[in-house]
Amino acid sequence: MIVPLNHILLVAAALFFMGLSCTLLRRNLVMILIGVEIMLNAAGLVLVAGSAFWQQLDGQLMVLLIMAVTAAEVAVALAMVVYLHGRSGTIDANTFKDMQG
């Protein structure tokens, strides 16, 4: 018996909202990606806590799959950042507001 599940959920919720506000409000493309990382980790914390709460392995396996998906997402997104920086010389998200398609 360590901590109540509620408290873990609260920590995860706080982390998730911090990541969400970072993603929504920062205008730097790298900071937007960092916000996505924070949100994914908050979700992972909930999955691990649920896995321990119900004594099942499935939550932890899902965290592993999330990690793999995150690695793929970060590779493509950072390649996109490098590409956009090469094209316009900046990574400010407002620069790309007239991008189509």
Partner: peptide, 22 residues
């Protein structure tokens, strides 16, 4: 919370690989 493998991968994959990529 009883996830030693996930803890190791959090350090190796997230802190070690993804953040270094950033």
């Amino acid at each position: 919370l009883g996830a030693p493998l996930i803890a190791a991968w959090e350090v190796i994959v997230y802190a070690g690989a993804i953040m270094v990529l950033f």
